[in-house]
Every structure is written in C-alpha cells, then in structure tokens.
Amino acid sequence: MEASVTLKKLKERFPGSILETHSHRGDDTAVVKKEDILKICTFLRDDESLLYNFMMDVTAVDYIGKEPRFEVVYHLYSLRYNRRFRVKAGVPESDCSIDSIVSIWVSANWFEREAFDMYGIQFKGHPELRRILLYEGFEGHPLRKDYPIKKRQPLIGPMN
C-alpha cells in the first residue's frame, strides 16, 4: 500500500526509535520513544517523499494503571501527498514531560497548551506553557483519570 511508504521510511531511518507500528484500515501509526520525538517529526516534515507539512492535532490519553501512563498523540497530514500519519509517544508519570514540537510546527502551540492544561504533561521548550482553557489558579488537571469527579473549584462564589 502506498500509504505505508511513511512507515517503511521511518523504520529504515530510525530503527531504534520505533517501538511499534500498525496500519489498521489504512491508518498508519507509529509508537515512538519520547526522547526521539523532535528528530522524527523533523524528518517527517522535511523528507522529500513525506512532507508532512500540516500538524493537525496534538492530544494525550491517560491509560491509568499502565506503564507508561500517558500517551501523547500527534496527527499529521501531508498536503503534497494527501497522506495522514499518526505518531504516539508514551510518557511515564514519573517523568511527565516530552519535547515540544512548536519549533517544527507552530500550530502545535495551543494544542500542547491544551494537553498540558488537561493532563499536566510538560512540553519542554514550549514558548509559553500555561493553561489555555481553564483559568490560572485551577488546581489539578481534570482529564486525568484520577481527578475526583465531584471536585469543585469555582473561580468565584459560590454564595451558598
């Protein structure tokens, strides 16, 4: 399948960084080591036969109880070749950080802030890593699975 070009190239180029790949129903996915995320993303953007120039989404998943607990997920699109690609990187709770990819795709800025806001994942090298949807003063990260469901932290009030 033509779409697997990406996976083939990635495996050739970074044999030690790719932990797992699959192409379920044509969706190419690579699980990579978080230390190598910058290298891999730069390659995906710049390689002449890939040119993933559109960073569509950065988000995270909390697999509580598993190791690594978090997974940061990147969705990429190549306008030149009309291809999509998904990159995932596991982030353990003990070292809850990953390199920011804002230097590669500027559009990652707000997505990374959102993932930080909701999951508390630190994006190292992000130009301005602060909350984007919630307010300053909010304690905790509400999309973490261990955030108490009944926890309330109102910005003002309540009066009763």
Partner: peptide
C-alpha cells in the same frame, strides 16, 4: 469541573 452548579450560587 467546568460548570457552575446553578446560577443561584
């Protein structure tokens, strides 16, 4: 976490 539990608060 996000919603005011009634505006009478």
């Amino acid at each position: 976490y996000a919603t005011v539990q009634g505006i009478d608060t």
